[in-house]
């Protein structure tokens, strides 16, 4: 791996943010809109005396963290789609660049984008809805990292599917994470799910992270078992996604698909 090649990928995607209004919309508009909607909902709950401040904190914290996870997964796949749409894949992979370097560059840019989006959402949650995430941040960071690692695994998997089935399945870039939301226990605890779904849910790093987040916001307690469980699941999912992508990439080279993308 060479740092200059990773920097090249970063520069390419930072320029894209500057030139493409859609990327700025994805980066800050949706996180802000989400937090505004959830913020009003928490005000409604508070006025009706339903759930109190703790529920409001859970919802706003979940909205910020889910936004980070969703954006990370989506932006990874969309970054890859940007190359496909502009027919730039041949230029990139006829240069001495490998997939790992490409992914590293994209991940760094996505971290910047996610930090900007979550930063804006947190600022609005604090100023408009009196939800200050900062005191809990040190204990939330490990869960955030797990969410982004899972977002990376899903992004790599989605990109692999797009590689195999081309832009016919590009909608997955925006919808795949949403598919997991009902069983990720984002806005409700694991115990709220029907019993058969609980096992499925507990196998997702998202569930472990959101359960952990609620523990942090409720009692200020970080749960190492939840963190390690989520991390172990992430290592497994990321390993599987990376192997899947490598297999698809080599298969695309064998089948000549790399030069036929539109």
């Amino acid at each position: 791996m060479k740092i200059h090649r990773i920097q090249a990928v970063m520069i390419r995607h930072l320029y894209e943010i500057r030139r493409n209004a859609d990327r700025i919309t994805d980066m800050v508009y949706w996180p802000i809109l989400d937090i505004i909607v959830w913020g009003f909902f928490t005000i409604y709950l508070a006025h009706g005396g339903r759930g109190g401040n703790r529920l409001a904190d859970f919802l706003l914290g979940a909205a910020i963290l889910w936004g980070m996870f969703y954006a990370f997964q989506r932006d990874l796949a969309v970054g890859f789609l940007d190359e496909l749409w502009s027919r730039n894949l041949i230029n990139l992979f006829s240069a001495p660049l490998d997939v790992t370097e490409y992914l590293c560059g994209l991940v760094v840019v996505n971290l910047i984008k996610v930090a900007a989006g979550a930063g804006c959402a947190s600022l609005i949650a604090w100023t408009c809805y009196a939800f200050d995430i900062l005191p809990a941040l040190p204990q939330l960071v490990p869960y955030m990292l797990n969410l982004m690692l899972f977002g990376l695994a899903l992004g790599v998997f989605t990109s692999g599917l797009i590689f195999r089935y081309t832009t016919k399945v590009q909608g997955l870039a925006w919808s795949f994470a949403g598919l997991l939301q009902p069983v990720s226990c984002v806005f409700y605890p694991l115990s709220a799910l029907p019993r058969p779904l609980r096992l499925v849910a507990s196998l997702l790093p998202t569930t472990q992270s959101f359960e952990g987040m609620r523990q942090v916001l409720a009692a200020g307690a970080f749960s190492p078992p939840r963190f390690w469980c989520a991390l172990a699941l992430n290592v497994m999912y990321f390993g599987a996604a990376a192997m899947f992508f490598r297999w698809i990439f080599e298969s695309a080279r064998r089948r000549g698909l790399l030069v036929k993308f539109e």
Partner: peptide, 28 residues
């Protein structure tokens, strides 16, 4: 080595200069 073809393209929204800077970095 290097390659070009009229059938491939550079990222469309980036300017000519921005694209060439990206590839200059890629090739160090």
């Amino acid at each position: 080595i290097n390659f070009t073809s009229p059938y491939v393209s550079l990222p469309l929204r980036l300017t000519v200069m921005e694209n060439l800077r990206v590839f200059a970095r890629l090739y160090n």
